[in-house]
Amino acid sequence: MKDKVCILGVPFSKLTLEQTTSLLDEHIMDAQGGMFHLITANPEITLASQTDEQLREIIGSADLIVPDGIGIVMAARRQGEPIPERVTGYDLLLSLLAQGNERGWSFYFLGTDELTSVQAVEQITLRYPQVKIAGRHHGFFTLEEESDIITDIRQAKPEVLILAMGAPYSDKWLYKNKEELRGVKVVFGVGGSLDVISGKVKLAPAIWKKLNLEWAHRLLFSPVAKGQKSRWRRQSALPKFVFRTMIRK
């Protein structure tokens, strides 16, 4: 398709952030629209999909996959099918919150730790007062608690469900519970975006973003949650991704 480019078997959208937001806006405002599952995929997730059969299945069933990483943009350029810009989970979340503030949409936030979740929602309420908070819950719940959380989301019927449990866990969790959450209009994972909104993690300075070095800023300055891989270990996927895409070309 002209609006997509396939990188290591993953069909990435060529839509800009503005176009992606407009697409989601149209879907939310369509009363007949079902659940729209968007995945924000970076080189690490793309590489993981090569050996993770379930992840490939999830990617294949998603409605849209956006390029959350400069490595994806560079790989597309090498293939001669350029992507205009990155569409990160953080930027897309802010864009949808701004749109939701105008439309009066409701959001449910699931993930990160309890304190960060509370502080992030407080900040969102201050910045986007017309956004309705349908609910929130931290991401360190047990299997016994999971059914109550799903029931809470179903009863809240948010237009947008935001998952902040890390990738690919967020997408795998949704895939497992997709049938029970059909009332949600749009759902996607945002990684550590709530940590940034809450103030727990500082956003990379403009110069780092301009040089496409946000990954380096996170590597050097962002804390890693208990139970997660170290950032140094995760970044080891980058040279592997570059090698794979160059060989494939």
Rank of each mutant, 00 (worst) to 15 (best):
Y108E: 07
V131A: 11
E122H: 09
V131F: 09
Q99F: 03
Q130L: 04
N101T: 01
V121W: 03
F107R: 03
G104K: 04
E114A: 15
S117M: 10
F141H: 14
L96T: 06
Q119T: 12
Q123M: 09
E102R: 07
Y128T: 07
V121K: 05
D113M: 09
N101G: 12
A134M: 04
F141E: 13
K132I: 13
E122P: 00
L97A: 04
Q123V: 05
Y128A: 04
A98C: 04
Y108M: 00
I133K: 04
W105E: 00
S95A: 15
Q99G: 00
T142L: 02
K132Y: 06
H138Y: 14
T112W: 11
S117R: 05
T125L: 10
Y128R: 05
Q130H: 11
P129D: 07
F107A: 03
A134L: 10
G100Q: 09
N101I: 01
T125F: 01
Q119H: 04
T125K: 14
Q130Y: 05
E114R: 13
P129T: 05
R136N: 14
F141M: 13
L110D: 04
G104D: 08
L115Q: 12
S95Y: 08
T112P: 04
H137T: 15
E122S: 11
Q99Y: 08
G104F: 10
G135W: 08
V121N: 07
I124V: 14
E122L: 06
H138I: 10
V131I: 10
F140H: 14
G100E: 00
V131G: 11
G100D: 00
F107K: 03
P129E: 03
L126I: 13
L96W: 10
Q123R: 12
T125C: 12
K132V: 12
K132P: 02
F107I: 08
L126K: 15
S106V: 02
R127S: 12
L97C: 12
Q119S: 03
R103V: 00
G139P: 12
I133W: 06
W105V: 01
L126Y: 08
V131C: 15
F141C: 15
R127A: 12
Q123L: 02
L110H: 13
Q123W: 03
F109M: 08
E102V: 06
F141P: 00
S95Q: 07
V121F: 08
E102D: 06
A134I: 06
R127I: 10
D113Y: 11
G111I: 02
F140D: 05
K132N: 03
G104W: 01
S106M: 01
N101L: 04
S106C: 02
Q99H: 04
F140Q: 10
L126E: 09
I133V: 10
G100P: 01
E114Y: 11
S117G: 11
L126S: 09
R136K: 15
F141Y: 14
T116K: 01
S117P: 04
P129Y: 06
G104C: 09
T116R: 12
L110E: 02
K132A: 02
L115N: 05
D113E: 13
S106N: 08
I133L: 11
T125G: 02
L94E: 07
Q130N: 14
G139S: 01
G104I: 13
A98N: 06
G111W: 11
V118W: 10
